[in-house]
């Protein structure tokens, strides 16, 4: 998102729920997008990323995720998808990269209000002071191991603060749906896909 106006959406309710959580710092979240921008965090969409400085497919144009967001998911996906990612290093990297692309595609369709919510969440996780204070993750994401990432996810899942539970669900839901919902990974759930007797007889498949 290029428009970095701080939190036009739902100030009342998010403040209220923040207060309810007893976390104090009511305005903390609403200032993060601004501070993150000022501190040099990459909050603009990454666009096309060259194959040289990353493992991303240079033909994919990121519309929402920033370079920092991509690094965040590169750190989190090995924990979120533990047991489902391929073992071979190359294949594993490719699977993570293509899952991040599908996460980006999905978020584009979320529309502006939920994109603003996710921007707040990702900025909070990428901005070092809030990453340390709220995620309690000390190193930057590219240095975070899968074990550390898993510990972070567990902390947010088990937190007594509803807002952090919500962050956990948001991160895992968009990742799990983008991964397990993708045809190449259906077999991991035992779902055989649309029955052949349908795809072989329906016009939208046969005349494609």
């Amino acid at each position: 998102m290029t428009d970095q106006h701080p939190l036009p959406g739902q100030p009342d309710t998010s403040r209220r729920s923040f207060l309810k959580t007893g976390l104090g710092g009511t305005l903390l979240l609403s200032t993060i997008s601004v501070s993150a921008g000022l501190s040099g965090c990459a909050t603009a969409p990454a666009g096309r990323i060259g194959a040289i400085d990353s493992r991303m497919d240079a033909s994919y144009q990121f519309q929402f995720l920033s370079r920092d967001d991509i690094a965040l998911f590169e750190a989190l996906l090995p924990a979120i998808l533990a047991g489902s990612l391929p073992d071979a290093q190359n294949q594993r990297r490719q699977t993570v990269a293509s899952t991040i692309e599908r996460i980006d595609q999905g978020i584009v369709k979320f529309g502006p209000p939920n994109q603003r919510e996710l921007r707040k969440l990702f900025d909070l996780l990428n901005f070092p002071p809030t990453r340390m204070a709220l995620a309690r993750t000390w190193s930057d994401w590219p240095s975070v191991t899968a074990t550390d990432a898993d510990a972070f996810l567990q902390r947010w899942r088990n937190s007594r603060i509803g807002l952090l539970n919500n962050g956990y669900v948001a991160l895992t839901k968009i990742s799990n749906a983008a991964f397990y919902g993708y045809a190449d990974h259906w077999h991991l759930t035992g779902y055989p896909g649309p029955p052949a007797w349908m795809t072989e007889s329906l016009p939208q498949f046969t005349s494609a």
């Binding site: 924990a79 979120i80 998808l81 533990a82 047991g83 489902s84 898993d150 996810l153 899942r157 956990y168 669900v169 895992t172 839901k173 990742s175 799990n176 749906a177 991964f179 397990y180 919902g181 990974h185 259906w186 991991l188 759930t189 035992g190 779902y191």
Partner: peptide, 25 residues
């Protein structure tokens, strides 16, 4: 329950999520 729906309904991550979703059928 299709895979993405199941993955969205049952919140979770890691091996536990993999095990949950692996028994979808």
């Amino acid at each position: 329950l299709h895979p993405a729906m199941a993955a969205g309904v049952v919140a979770g991550h890691g091996q536990q999520q993999r095990d949950n979703l692996g028994q979808l059928p």
